[in-house]
Nucleic acid binder design. Structure first.
Lengths: 166, 166
DNA sequence: CGTGGATATCTCGACGTCAAGACAGGTAAG
DNA sequence: CTTACCTGTCTTGACGTCGAGATATCCACG
């Protein structure tokens, strides 16, 4: 079977036969697959009346464990957005009743953002559906293939996750 | 070696031991790797005074082959943006002297966007550097591993690239 | 203590994208 | 022909994000 990346590489090869475009076989596929994944996830979240950015913030809180509370600073580092963006997101999540802001008793500059019961219910349901959907997307791969794939991807990821050279 | 995804999955397992989060091993890595890749690419393009969106449009024209000319409609389908976005992008690329608009002689509604010589020079240089940088990122993998990885990724991608269910 | 720099959060203006719609030109059926 | 629909591009208004800066607080060192 051929995919779009095979066609893309073929086009490059015709135009730039002097270049060895072998890296594209792996890395263009990673990018394109990520884009398709984003769409698939959006569809799952939409079924829960949720958008991707909401899911990102809510899952960061959910993963933190009881009492599901983090500072805006930790949230923005977890989700890789700027502080202005995070303020805006928390504002909207608070209006929607999914999180609640409270002053940090330890640090008067600080704020703590906590998942409400409604927020926890919503994110748990969306996450369960997401994992189910992702399992479907992996359907074409055997368990062994999945382990191989995960392991190879990890070795590409490790340099990024260890080096501070982000 | 552990990466961030191992830690993320560990956190989910502690919080939701009832869920089988195995799909995350593959798919969260795909997403995170794509994000890191985006940053790495941005850095390469910046060295050529170029932004990612410019590269996307210019490479679509470059891959089309001589005379490096496509309609805005084909460009927006190739880059997955809306028509309004593409109008804006072509405007800016034209101001920068990298592309030129001309009326389509075959279809009076249409326009053709052609790479200028300056545009072609710029995109060729950036693309060569990009491929070099990507080769470095794959340095930790043997040639056999790369082929395995590409092949597994392709089988995940094929359903998206064949089904019209985008 | 007090002072200078670091940290945490929020505010503000600019910008790129999207969605919807406008408009001109193409196209096929009667 | 001509009518009705489709296609290709551009326009417009709304919105989310970013980057820079403002403000308040914390903290380490002298």
């Amino acid at each position: 079977m051929e995919d779009e990346v095979d066609r893309l590489i073929e086009a490059w090869h015709a135009e730039r036969p002097d270049l060895d475009v072998e890296p594209l076989h792996v890395l263009s596929r990673v990018s394109r697959l990520a884009r398709h994944l984003d769409r698939a996830r959006r569809a799952v979240f939409a079924a829960h009346g949720m958008e991707s950015w909401e899911f990102d913030v809510l899952t960061a809180l959910r993963r933190a464990g009881s009492p599901y509370e983090l500072s805006p600073g930790r949230l923005l580092r977890a989700t890789l957005v700027t502080s202005g963006t995070m303020t805006n997101r928390i504002d909207r999540l608070e209006s929607a009743g999914l999180v609640r802001r409270s002053p940090d008793p330890q640090d008067k500059r600080g704020v703590l953002v906590r998942l409400t019961d409604a927020g926890r219910t919503r994110v748990d349901a969306a996450f369960a559906d997401l994992v189910d959907r992702e399992r479907e997307l992996l359907g074409s791969l055997s368990p062994g293939d999945r382990r191989t794939l995960a392991s190879l991807l990890r070795s590409l990821l490790v340099p990024f996750d260890t080096d501070p050279a982000a």
